[in-house]
């Protein structure tokens, strides 16, 4: 933002009117709330860091075969010749060309982590997408229609949320055998309700908005109101929730693997690697420290990004809160909020 005329002193007249001209030309193509959020996100250093960590993991996942080819280390088969030392013991980080060392059967930990990233990100993202879509649809229907439909769906969501999900996952895995699709299915099944409940709450308040009433007075049907009026307002919260759900799903997947009911061995996943590392102590610290670290960095990355996205999408929660703290006042009503909006320069005259 350039300096205001007041800050720069007194500008010549021509310049002032030119600024006004530019202002109106620039904003003719409307800047959508999402565009504005992105612009805000770009100034957030923490978001950059978090996105960097996630991109690093994604690159690791994408180039896993390349890493494997470059090092000549297979992720599944023990590297019999070079993977262990002369006593048949695993190599530490840096030894024998193994950057992160090998596990106790001589497999390259770096390569396995890279392949594990594929599973983790795939499970994390895919199950979140499924859960978000399902949760949004069910949440909107429950919130919009209300009445007995809502009563039934809301109780269903409560039920899902109070399920002992690890137990169920173990039961399912023992019945159908552990697999990737089952893992995604189980995680999605236990995640949609969290989104559904929040979407339902949002819908309950959105449906009372005057613009919904306006649409109804124009003769718009229920479907149109749900899709055209309500859904666009849910995009932001669902994106935030989704971003925060991905790390939960990744941890969930790792937990299932660790318990042996996820994607079964020998597929390299972070959870499987941690399960394999069980029993190894401080001596073979690289068995468990690297998978743990990648897991931590990934989940932390998604969580921080989620927080930043939330702040970017809804800057008022953060900024007005800051302002509240400053002015030391309690609640406020509509007129106050409007005043604050104006103060914050959100409502720019065109």
């Amino acid at each position: 933002m350039s300096l205001t005329p007041l800050e720069t002193g007194l500008p010549p007249l021509e310049e002032a009117s030119e600024v006004a001209e530019l202002g109106s030309a620039r904003a003719i193509e409307g800047r959508s709330p999402l565009w504005l959020a992105l612009a805000r996100l770009r100034t957030d250093r923490m978001a950059f860091l978090a996105a960097g960590a996630i991109i690093l993991m994604a690159l690791l996942a994408i180039f896993a075969p390349l890493i494997s080819a470059a090092t000549g280390h297979d992720p599944l088969n023990p590297n019999l010749l070079t993977g262990t030392n002369s006593f048949g013991q695993p190599l530490g980080p840096g030894q024998g060309g193994y950057i992160l060392g090998t596990d106790n059967v001589g497999r390259d930990i770096l390569v396995r982590i890279a392949y594990g990233a594929r599973i983790s990100l795939l499970v994390g993202v895919l199950s979140t997408v499924i859960a978000s879509v399902a949760g949004t649809i069910i949440g909107v229907i429950a919130g919009y229609y209300g009445g007995w439909i809502d009563a039934v769906l809301a109780r269903l969501m409560d039920t899902v949320l109070s399920f002992p999900y690890v137990l169920l996952a173990i039961v399912l895995a023992s019945v159908y055998g552990p697999s990737l699709s089952l893992t995604i299915g189980v995680i999605a099944f236990f995640s949609w309700a969290a989104i559904g409940r929040i979407v339902r709450g949002q819908t309950l308040s959105l449906r009372e908005k005057e613009y919904v009433e306006a649409a109804r007075s124009l003769g718009a049907g229920n479907l149109r109101i749900m899709f055209v009026e309500i859904l666009p307002n849910l995009v932001a919260p669902v994106i935030v929730l989704g971003t925060l759900l991905v790390p939960t799903a990744i941890v969930f997947e790792a937990t299932l693997d660790y318990l042996g009911v996820g994607v079964g061995p020998p597929t390299p996943t972070w959870g499987n690697m941690l399960a394999d590392a069980q029993g190894s102590g401080f001596q073979d610290w690289w068995f468990w420290i690297f998978p743990s670290l990648t897991l931590l960095i990934t989940t932390l990355g998604f969580n921080l990004l989620g927080d930043s996205v939330r702040d970017a999408l809804d800057p008022r929660t953060e900024r007005i809160f800051a302002m509240r703290r400053k002015s030391g006042r309690g609640g406020a009503d509509g007129a106050d909020q409007e005043a604050e909006e104006r103060l914050l320069g959100e409502a720019q005259p065109g």
């Binding site: 904003a27 003719i28 193509e29 409307g30 959508s32 709330p33 409502a347 065109g350």
Partner: peptide, 10 residues
């Protein structure tokens, strides 16, 4: 201003 959003208006 056809493509603007409501928040860009007073």
């Amino acid at each position: 201003h056809y493509n603007r959003f409501p928040s860009e208006f007073s």
